[in-house]
Amino acid sequence: MTSVHEDLLTIGAFAARARLSAKALRLYDRLGLLAPAYVDESSGYRYYRAAQVERARLVALLRRLDMPLARIAEVAGAEGGEAARLLGAYWADVEARLAGQRTLAEYLRGRLSGRSEEMYGKFAVETVDVPARVVITESRHTLADELPAWIGASLGRLEAAARECGGVAAAPFVVYHAEVSTESDGPAEACVPVADEAAARAWAARQGRGRETGVRVEPAARLAYVRITKAQVAHPQILAAFEAVEEWLGREGLEPAGPCREIYFADWTAAGPEDPVCDVAFPVRAR
């Protein structure tokens, strides 16, 4: 090397300063997280500057948090306060995911140990007869992670459109025409009952082809349902509510007469975690 490069460290010397292995440094280079300051074209030897030690140690620590490579690059490339903010945002996501997984594990433990009475006994199943209703709708194939945001947005759009259709005539609801999970994308259908069928059909016609909106008549039905709180709407607690209704149907000699649904009768924004906000329901009929 020329004198221009005399301040560079060999990969072995740099690895010792960074308390990492040469293998790890080669990996970081390959992943685009920490490139050598200089690579000798003839020998292929890598050389680093002492100023790169801090980034090398930071990358190693962030990898121990299972941080995705793209986010490691973002944090490592940011300045102090912004880097801390990015790390905080990532860890908040991790804790939210772990909290959900912890709840799911407890739910599955209950299922696997046969604690059905403990799981379902807290839900009181009731029935109600509902008349036929005209509904304006918006449908979407969506996975579970995207579902809450889509429900809020789609019902908001439909409630705004209901002003053109005689107003909202009953509680909005979401129908699941197939399973929505981390692997199955439904579809789900957001529905808002409206008072003026002619105006609703005119509204639907203005949406144009290719839009996932529409209008239809929801038939009269007897619904079996349980009422749940805002906290229980979260996955997987809501699964236990659906299963409680299904178990009750089996005991009562009934069966689903249509797809399951969630009926949102309360102001979601104003509700607290323990406030009732939703009915989990199935249309039912005798076997």
Rank of each mutant, 00 (worst) to 15 (best):
M1L: 15
T2I: 13
V4M: 13
E6H: 13
E6F: 11
L8G: 01
T10C: 07
A13H: 14
A13V: 04
F14Q: 02
A15D: 09
L27K: 08
L31C: 09
L33M: 09
L34K: 05
Y38D: 12
Y38F: 15
S43M: 13
G44S: 05
Y45M: 11
R46V: 10
L58D: 01
L61G: 14
M67P: 02
A70F: 02
A73W: 02
V75S: 08
G77F: 10
E95R: 13
E95C: 14
A96Q: 11
L98T: 05
A99Q: 14
L104R: 11
Y107V: 08
G110N: 01
L112F: 10
S113W: 04
R115H: 12
M119C: 10
M119P: 03
Y120C: 02
K122G: 09
V128T: 12
D129P: 05
I136W: 00
H141E: 10
E146L: 12
W150C: 08
I151T: 06
S154N: 01
S154Y: 01
L158I: 06
C165H: 04
A170T: 02
Y176D: 04
E179H: 13
S181H: 00
P187N: 01
A188L: 10
A195E: 12
D196Y: 09
Q207S: 06
G208V: 04
E212F: 14
V217K: 11
A221F: 02
L223V: 07
V226K: 01
V233A: 13
A234I: 03
A234V: 06
L239A: 10
A240V: 02
E243W: 08
A244G: 03
V245P: 00
G250S: 08
L254P: 02
C260Y: 05
C260M: 11
D267L: 07
W268F: 12
W268M: 15
W268Q: 13
D275Y: 06
R287Q: 08
R287T: 11
